[in-house]
Amino acid sequence: MKHTQQPEALLVLQDGTVYKGLALGKIGTAGGEICFNTGMTGYQEIYTDPSYYGQVIINTTSHIGNYGILNNAEQESNGVKIRAMVCNFFSNIHSRYTADGSLQDYFERANIVGIHGVDTRQLVRYIRSKGVMNCIISSEILDPAVLLAELNKVPDMDGLELSSEVCTREAYEQGDPEASLRVAVLDLGVKRSILSNFNQRGVFCKVFPARTSHAELAAWKPNGYFIANGPGDPAAMPYAVETVKQALETEKPLFGICLGHQILSLASGISTYKMHNGHRGLNHPVKNLITGHCEVTSQNHGFAVRAEEVMDHANVELTHINLNDKTIEGIRRKDKPAFSVQYHPESSPGPHDSHYLFDQFIGMMKE
């Protein structure tokens, strides 16, 4: 088989470290916060997850692109949300007979820049040691000094509000309008599979833009409130914190996932912080302290809530803890029908150990 010569590409980290490789996707330049996902599968779900908006993803599994893409079934939003991608081996051919096309064509249509042929194991070890930082990838500019100057223009994720950029522009409904339960979804970057989990359980959802007031949510007369996942720094979202504070006062059940968990924490008076390295992958062990059971979870977050403030809070109970680093994975309010988890129980991709959380929320609304 004859192979065409692939253009060279450079990856430059914020501290000046340079990695050489080959171009994938669109020929161009893109920068953002670099982070890594340890999942062995589910790359399309990762790339279309709005929580990754503004980030450059390192896929740690060796082969990427080998099973192609599906235009609808594996999309978590209306398109690719990552800024760029890094991997070890990028496959230009795919073997899944149901695939709609190649990952290369998919990235070209989405204007996504990337680099492969990089020793991702060494790169991840470096980032784990140095901590999360910005980076820039280019297949058109091969001068590290020029790229480093361009990289200085990329905003830092700390203090960045991004939910209003990825959320729906207009409220929309999803599910059976005749359903007995109605959930108002505050869209901070919601994944489609979360809405599907509600719909499959007979819940009718209305999805509202991130900056929607509580008055508008309440006017729809929901049985409960769902605070979605999403990108950016939760501390830069006082508008969402205020909406959740008002929702709590209604005494209606409230459930938060990932960024929604952090927003509930902030609304309860618990602060958040940026992690040295986030949790991103499909096999993070979490212990449910209420049942004593352990769950293998899907995760994607770079911020967390402060453990000492959770433990000291009179009206907040710790429900889930990460077994790798003891970070907070779940809380519930003692004085309100509200709870949240830091991980992703919809698990797309990932194991299904945590689907019970949707049933728990529905049970609260039925009560």
Score class of each variant (00 low, 15 high):
G256S: 13
K130G: 01
I136Q: 01
E76Q: 15
D119G: 07
G114D: 07
H214G: 12
L217I: 06
S180L: 03
G278E: 04
Q342K: 02
H313C: 06
S91P: 04
Q14M: 02
I46V: 12
V154S: 08
D325G: 13
V166M: 07
D49W: 01
Y273V: 00
I58K: 02
L70F: 15
G39W: 02
T48K: 03
T60I: 06
A236Y: 06
S138L: 06
Q174A: 13
N300D: 09
A184E: 06
I127T: 07
N37R: 00
K81I: 00
I34K: 07
I27T: 13
D176I: 00
A73Y: 11
A145G: 07
H313W: 01
E346R: 08
E76R: 04
E329P: 02
N66I: 04
H94R: 03
Y67R: 14
V207S: 05
Q75M: 15
S265T: 02
C87I: 08
C258N: 12
G260W: 11
G260T: 00
K81E: 14
L103I: 09
A110M: 10
H301F: 09
L22M: 04
Q5S: 13
P231L: 03
G330S: 15
L13H: 03
V166P: 04
R280M: 13
H3Q: 08
A236G: 13
Q174H: 11
V190K: 02
A235T: 05
N88M: 11
I194L: 04
F107E: 12
S180R: 10
T98H: 13
A30L: 05
R280N: 11
N288I: 00
D49M: 03
N324K: 12
T38W: 05
G292P: 10
N71W: 11
G65V: 07
E251D: 13
I141K: 02
N197R: 06
Q104L: 05
V80R: 13
W220C: 03
G101S: 10
H320I: 00
S163E: 09
G117L: 02
T41K: 10
I27R: 15
G16S: 02
T168E: 09
L282M: 10
A184N: 07
I69A: 07
T48R: 04
K206Q: 14
S164A: 13
E216V: 15
L70N: 15
C258M: 10
G32C: 05
P50A: 10
G42K: 09
V296Q: 15
G28R: 02
Q44F: 00
I362Y: 11
H313T: 03
H63N: 15
A145S: 14
G175R: 04
K326W: 09
C167A: 13
L186D: 03
Y106S: 09
D353S: 07
A240W: 03
T29G: 06
P144M: 06
E308R: 07
E165I: 02
L254E: 11
A247K: 06
D325N: 15
A9G: 07
T61V: 08
Q44A: 08
V310D: 15
F255R: 08
V86N: 10
S139K: 02
A267T: 05
R182I: 00
V244C: 14
